[in-house]
C-alpha cells in the first residue's frame, strides 16, 4: 500500500515537473515574446515580419502545437516507466 502510494506520488511529481517546463515555454513565446517584450523584438525583422509581431500572430501558435505533442510523448514514457499506462 505505502509502496504504491510513494510510486504514485513520484509519478505525479515527475509529471508536474514536465508540465511546469512546458508551461514556461508556453508563457515565454506568447506572453513574453508576443506581448511583454514585443517592442524590443520588433527591432529584429524576419522578412517583412517584425519578430515580436510574428510571435504574436504566427510563431506562438506553431509552438503551442509542438508543445502539446511533446507533452503527449513525454507523459506516455512516464506512464510506462511507472507502469500506470492503459493496456
Amino acid at each position: 500500500m505505502s509502496d504504491s502510494n510513494t510510486q504514485a506520488s513520484a509519478y505525479w511529481k515527475e509529471n508536474l515537473a514536465i508540465i511546469i517546463k512546458i508551461m514556461v515555454v508556453w508563457f515565454v513565446v506568447s506572453f513574453g515574446f508576443g506581448i511583454l517584450l514585443v517592442d524590443e523584438l520588433n527591432a529584429i525583422t524576419l522578412g517583412g515580419y517584425k519578430l515580436g509581431f510574428w510571435f504574436a500572430q504566427q510563431g506562438s501558435i506553431y509552438v503551442f502545437v509542438v508543445l502539446i505533442f511533446y507533452y503527449a510523448k513525454k507523459i506516455e514514457q512516464l506512464d510506462e516507466k511507472y507502469d500506470v499506462h492503459e493496456d
Binding site: 512546458i22 508556453w26 508576443g34 506562438s60 501558435i61 508543445l67
Partner: peptide, 24 residues
C-alpha cells in the same frame, strides 16, 4: 492590427492548458 493578436494567441494557447491540465 497587432492588438488583434489577443484573439490569435488566446484562442489557441488555451489548448495547451487543456491538454496539460484538464483533458486527460
Amino acid at each position: 492590427g497587432y492588438g488583434g493578436s489577443v484573439f490569435l494567441m488566446g484562442w489557441t494557447g488555451g489548448y495547451v492548458l487543456l491538454a496539460l491540465l484538464l483533458a486527460p
